[in-house]
Each structure stands twice: as structure tokens, then as C-alpha cells.
Amino acid sequence: MNPYIPRVVPIVDIREETPDTKTFTIAAPMSFQPGQFVELSVFGYGEAPISISGGDGKKIDLTIRAVGNVTNKIHRMQVGEYVGVRGPFGNGWPVEKAKGKNLLIVAGGIGLAPLKPVVEHVCSHREEFRNVTLLYGARKPSLMLFKYKFDEWAGYMDLLLTVDEAEPGWEGHVGVVTTLCDKIRHVADTITLMCGPPIMMKYTSMVLLELGFPPSEMYLSLERNMKCGIGICGHCAVGGVYVCRDGPVFSLNKAFRFIEKPHEVQGVLD
């Protein structure tokens, strides 16, 4: 099997999440672990690594913000048009490890997309976990993803929401994600899963460390511009590991270990 050849699949549903983000459901029959990603092809425009934000074995959801060539093009596409997909790639979140323990999910902005399958897993297997908290921050209330799901999720876990900048109608917390960290009601025996912009992950992991969360139990999903997804093209290499194959999820412990001087994980841990 040639790993560079994508499967051609149609877009079957498009949902607008925020002004710059849409969720595309594509008919790709694929089983995946929460936290894995695919290489999405828009023919004529190239490929981009996109994390899987949901799926049922027959279809997968890709929540995509329009930032580059491929993502801007797919934002202009309609249901019924075809894209290519390779994958799934990467290791995914260590959900198994969190069984019987407390679970803390920290997301910033579009970082909620790769964590959504975990949140959904918690909703359908709530008895497997003890306390569960979802801490989610976005720049503005209008930029929050999956708002229509919040009520449902709140029935299963503590939902801590924050925005950097309030808008009319927002009555919740205002401030960066770190300002909510002391509201988490469980510290001991907690597995933390985190995904967000590098700067957010950096400061949040520092604050959580200070609050007593152990670094070996904190998992970060790193973003890199993977071109091949199979550990060859070199774009995602940091400190001797390939984010696409060995990651994208790393324990904070391991991320520290990449290199003694963490310039390689700049933005996350420097």
C-alpha cells in the first residue's frame, strides 16, 4: 500500500461553527483513536494535517479554521464535492490511562477539535471516570466551537468556560485559561489532556504544575506542519522525535526530555 495515495471521498455535511471555522463531515470509513489526525487533500491545492473531531466509523468530522491554501479552499467547497484523505496518523490521547481516575481536559480555541472525541467518549462512558472537568477558553464568545453541545456536556462534567474578551450577552468568566485553573476541584490522581495555541499550553502547564498536577500525567498535543504524516519529510521533527508518528500527544515529562534546552519545543516550554 502506497502511503502517499489518498482515498477520494465526498463531503456529506458542512456545519458553520464560527465565522472562520466549519466542521466538514466526509464519508471516509475509518476507525480512529481520539487525538489522531488525517492528511486532508484538496486536489490542486495540496494537503494539510487536520485532527479528527468526531466520527462513527463510516464518516469523520474535520473541524477546520481557514488559515492556509488548503483550508481556505475547502471553506469554499460544497456538500457533494470530493476531497482526498490519508490516515489516520499519530498516537492519540491516552484515554485508557484515565479510566478510574479524574480527568481534566483543557482546550484553547480550535484546540477543542481534537479533544471533542474524548469529551464525547466521556459522555457515553461516564462511569469509567471519576471527576471530569472541561476547561475551555476562546478569544471571544462568538469564536467558541461546539456551543450547541455545551448544555449536553454540562450534564456529564464540570464545564469551565472563559473568553479573553467579552461580547454583549456573555455572562461567564472573562480572562485567559490560567485564571480558571484554581476552580478545578480535583488535583490528585488526575490525567490532564491539553490542546491549544503554544502560548496557552505553555502558561497553563506552568500554572497546573504549580497547583500540583504531576508532569507525567499531563498530556499535550503539539501542532506541526506535517507534510507526509509518516515520519519522513522532516517538517514535524522536534528534538529527535517525529510529532506525526511519535506524537502528536506527548506527556509534559517527555516534551521536557526532547532536549535539555527546550528551544526545540519553543512556545510550549521555553
Binding site: 486536489f43 490542486g44 491545492y45 495540496g46 494537503e47 507534510k227 507526509c228 519522513i232 519529510c233 522532516g234 517538517h235
Partner: peptide, 13 residues
């Protein structure tokens, strides 16, 4: 051995 992946197309795409 690093590489970039690109698409080249005709004008109509």
C-alpha cells in the same frame, strides 16, 4: 531528505 508536498495543475484545475 526533507521535502515539501505540492500540487501542480492545469489552468482549469
Amino acid at each position: 531528505h526533507c521535502f515539501d508536498v505540492r500540487d501542480i495543475t492545469n489552468l482549469e484545475g
